[in-house]
Amino acid sequence: MRCPFCGSENTSVKDSRSAEDNTAVRRRRVCEACGARFTTFERVQLREIMVVKRDGKRVPFDRDRLTRSITIALRKRPVDREQIDQMVSGIARKLESGGETEVTSNEVGEFAMEALRQVDPVGYVRFASVYKDFRDPNDFAQFIEQTSLEDESDPE
């Protein structure tokens, strides 16, 4: 593993443990050249998932981008980083286990909204406002009303 600080390839693992609901391995590393410490994560990737954007472009699924989007939606909310990592891991598992090599950005957005809906209602609405491109306050009101009606009809 290359050191992100000095670029040396001479690093060693000081500690390993499972992370993200046992779907990843977290490794603490130290660079033998400069002494810097850093953390890496190792995950199994079953297959390369391509995301088909609204404009038709195909890009590789990017966990980090999804994590950033969810983190922004949950900014200043009582949700810790571990919960966000678990949400993203769950979404990635759904995509990988779906059997398809291509998914639409709409599917990824819907999975993210469902995960946020279960964790934090404010983050859910924030994410939806960007994902569904809300234009004015009435869009928020309509979305919240629609969501409330769906919750009332949910048999759980």
Rank of each mutant, 00 (worst) to 15 (best):
D80P: 06
G7P: 03
D55L: 00
V108R: 04
Q45H: 12
R2D: 10
E32Y: 03
F134Q: 00
R43Y: 09
S105Q: 09
E150L: 07
Q45I: 15
G99M: 03
A73L: 00
R37P: 12
Q86S: 14
E32S: 11
R43K: 15
N22G: 14
A128E: 05
Y131P: 04
G56E: 01
E48Y: 04
R2K: 12
E150F: 00
A112G: 03
E114V: 01
E20T: 15
R93M: 06
D133N: 07
E9F: 10
M113F: 08
I70L: 09
R117S: 10
G123R: 05
N22I: 07
L46F: 12
M113S: 12
A36S: 15
V79C: 10
R47K: 13
A115C: 05
E145G: 06
K57W: 01
D85G: 15
V125G: 09
K57D: 05
V125L: 08
Q45E: 15
D80A: 07
R58P: 02
D55S: 01
I84P: 09
E145W: 05
P137E: 01
L66C: 04
R29E: 13
D151T: 05
T104N: 11
L116F: 08
P121L: 02
P121W: 00
K76H: 12
T40H: 11
V51P: 03
E152Q: 13
E9M: 09
V59I: 05
P4K: 06
A112N: 05
E152M: 10
S129M: 06
E100S: 13
T67A: 11
R75Q: 13
V51F: 05
R93D: 09
C3F: 03
A73I: 02
I72W: 00
T39N: 14
P137H: 03
S153I: 03
I70T: 00
L149D: 12
F61D: 07
V79F: 08
A73W: 01
E82V: 12
P4R: 04
F134K: 00
D136F: 01
C31Q: 08
